[in-house]
Simulated scan of single mutants.
Amino acid sequence: MSAASSPSESSPQALQTLRVKGGVRAAFRAGPRGTFAATVHEADGWRVRFPDTGPGADCEAVILNTGGGIAGGDEVRLDFDLGPGARVTATSAAGERVYRALDVPARIATALRLAPGSALAWLPRETILSSGARLARRIEVEMAETATLSLLDILVLGRHGSGERMQAGMLDDLWAIRRGGRLVHAEAVRLDGAIADALARPAIAGGAHVIGTLLHVAPEAEACLERVRREIVGLGDVEIAASAWEGKLVLRALAGCGGRMRAAMQVALDALRGAPMPRAWMM
């Protein structure tokens, strides 16, 4: 007698054939009519699309995962290379879901390179970790002294809208941003086990399960601080603060709802960039 089993109940060996090794690699160059994608490579269900933003606007790149989420053992690489003077706003079509894993974590590696005079606004929608998800993520940036980077990250740990707390799981998150060959920003976060219990501690998140980070690295970053602070001071439903030093501005936020976090980050980004959010954020 035999019974059918779902993929989540199958052996790691059986799941190996289902695992994704995909991503997007794109190189951007500045031309007489603005920035354009000079080369694009898409793999294993990952795509990038370029909406028409009109003359004089930055090139907009929208990343799509046609697989509908990321599972344990999947490996994703996002690689963007901006040539001198290129201006790109990159986002995603929807929030990225990371599903429960049996053992092997999902891996997401993001590599960004910014040549002199280039500007990249890396503004993906939120990353949503289901209870039991295991995610190892790496973000590495190599940028010139005169380049500008605005990098947004929103993590939703547990789908509270569905009544789910992150009772188990793992997040291993490392960032390294180098400017002119020098390390100017690094982050290392590891949460393992009962993540919801850890987030309940006042010294960690005080019960919030949505974590937002906005990093702005640019020659004028410190001059933007007071303008950003003026705009975020009235956001009472989100714990939020900003500081700036040595050519970078860092904004941290905690919230109990992904929608409120997105709204707060839109306010901060508008004050920082003075440019509209990508159209994918309005959908």
Rank of each mutant, 00 (worst) to 15 (best):
L215M: 06
A200C: 11
V189H: 15
A218D: 02
E187P: 02
A208T: 11
L225T: 03
V210D: 01
G206K: 14
L191F: 15
D192K: 12
R182H: 13
A194W: 13
G212V: 02
C224D: 05
R190L: 10
A221Q: 01
A194V: 05
A188C: 10
I177Q: 02
A198C: 09
A188F: 10
H185A: 11
A205L: 06
L183G: 07
V189G: 06
E187C: 01
E187M: 08
A221V: 00
A198M: 13
H216L: 08
E226D: 14
L215I: 11
R201T: 00
A208H: 15
D192H: 14
V210T: 04
G206A: 12
E187A: 09
G207E: 12
R182T: 09
V210M: 05
A188V: 00
I204F: 12
E226R: 07
H216F: 11
G193D: 11
D197F: 07
V210L: 09
A198D: 12
V217S: 00
L191H: 13
V210G: 05
A194N: 15
A196S: 15
G193T: 09
L183I: 04
R190Y: 09
L214H: 07
L199G: 04
A196L: 05
R227T: 09
I177D: 03
A194R: 15
R201S: 07
D197P: 00
R201N: 07
V184G: 06
A223N: 11
E187Q: 14
L215Q: 00
D192Y: 10
R179E: 06
L225V: 02
I177M: 12
L225H: 06
A208W: 05
G212L: 07
P202R: 15
T213W: 06
G181H: 08
P219F: 04
A205M: 10
G193I: 08
A203P: 02
E187W: 03
E222F: 02
A186D: 08
H216I: 01
H185Q: 12
L225D: 01
L191D: 04
G181P: 01
A200R: 15
E220N: 13
R179S: 02
R179A: 03
R227E: 04
V189Y: 14
R201F: 06
E226V: 00
H209T: 12
P219L: 03
A194I: 02
D197H: 13
A188T: 09
G212S: 10
V210K: 02
A186G: 14
R201L: 12
R201D: 06
L183H: 12
C224W: 04
G207W: 15
A218T: 05
R178T: 05
P202F: 12
G206C: 10
R179G: 01
H185P: 03
V217D: 03
H216T: 05
A196N: 12
A196G: 07
D192R: 14
A218Q: 03
